[in-house]
Design a protein around this nucleic acid. Structure first.
Lengths: 151, 151
DNA sequence: TTAAAATACTTGTATATACAAATATATCTT
DNA sequence: AAGATATATTTGTATATACAAGTATTTTAA
């Protein structure tokens, strides 16, 4: 097998490429729909995960696990939201190593205003995919995430 | 529907989050396997796309289309490879707006050395997923890419 | 034949991502 | 209680991504 053959096989088979390409396309579509909100899909995903905690608060480590994100990435993503006045981060009382992230009032308002746009993007995109492809994609993505979770 | 409900629906349903989370997990797995090569999955994907052209050359626009990447992103990704001596970029003779990207000899060598590691990563990961999930994921990702292609 | 429009990219600016190393705090061990 | 170890997170450094605006070149049209 010469290197051109290997290259053709990679181009045809690489799961990493395909997963990333699809994620890029989906992200562009969501981001376009979210443009009027001034927030990106990744940002409302993160804010939404915070909103699901008691009193719209979550420890950093829990967010990382929920989102499947490296903590170092999370720290950086949170600092963008913090700079924008959308979240605050404070040390936990019980264990001062732990940091608790909270949505500010502004953050809650902005998230609530963004969710209808998310819903619109979601409806448009799942309609473009069709229900069969949408369902197949959900199932396959979830199985892949589970399979790769433990490492 | 109050905002907590909406948040729960988004957490459960957001295709963008799921696609990105899976892409992150897959990328981490491939990158770990590629670590000894000094190249990342995104980089060998790009180099491989160049390698598929006549004489291992491709115009920038064609690469963007093949990879589903914004040209601005491609310019940046190519400059990393260029700095590393793996590719060169030159103006086309026929139309001097067009830039032709070529693998250098070093680039060809490094790519050829990396492909077995890619293959190993691919085998490990598809084994972890199982053939059924792997096939379902391929099919679903391809359909999604096609459906979102025209925008 | 030259001004306008189109094309093919690059640059400015900003966010997203992650590995490796560092820091801060807590827990455990002796 | 002091030192060793573990845990939770941040920082250093680097790549990946994309929108908007800019540049260079070619094509079109008057």
């Amino acid at each position: 097998m010469n290197h051109i053959d290997a290259a053709q096989i990679m181009a045809a088979d690489c799961l990493c490429f395909r997963a990333r390409r699809t994620a890029r396309a989906i992200t562009r579509a969501y981001d376009a729909a979210l443009h009027p909100t001034g927030l990106k899909a990744t940002q409302i995903t993160l804010m939404n995960a915070i909103a699901l905690g008691q009193n719209s608060m979550q420890p950093v480590a829990k967010l990382g696990e929920t989102l499947g994100l490296e903590l170092s990435t999370l720290t950086r993503n949170l600092s963008v939201l913090e700079r924008g006045g959308l979240v605050t981060v404070a040390r936990a009382l019980a264990d001062r190593r732990v940091r608790i992230v909270s949505l500010t009032d502004t953050g809650k308002t902005r998230l609530a205003a963004a969710l209808p746009h998310w819903k619109e993007a979601h409806t448009t995109i799942t309609a473009a995919l069709g229900s069969e492809t949408t369902n197949a994609l959900y199932t396959a993505l979830d199985r892949a995430t589970k399979a790769l979770d433990v490492g």
